[in-house]
Amino acid sequence: MPWIDACATDAIDEEDLIRFDHGGATYAIYHGVDGKFYATAGMCTHEHVHLCDGLVMDFMIECPKHNGQFDYRTGEAMRAPVCVNLKTFPVKVDGNRVLIEVP
């Protein structure tokens, strides 16, 4: 799978996320409280809602519609109404750029 240049490292505040669209799919890229970057699918697995408008707390992303929560490091569904895990994608930093490996 190719590595895609997604954004600059300073484009995402720490403990926040942005939306990244590529190849007809939408992703969420996170800047964790540990300083590392993470990537998941961009839509909630419960209903068709973009996670980019949600709240990042520590290592959780909370969906803006129903407050379901995922651990964005693993994609694990942590709080109802979400039951299905979120897909995660490998991330690496090259200089001041964030790259994600996507299908």
């Binding site: 419960h46 209903e47 519609k65 129903h66 109802a80 109404p81």
Partner: peptide, 10 residues
């Protein structure tokens, strides 16, 4: 009711 309220918001 946790689920009914999720639907109420959707």
């Amino acid at each position: 009711w946790r689920w009914s309220h999720a639907r109420h918001h959707s």
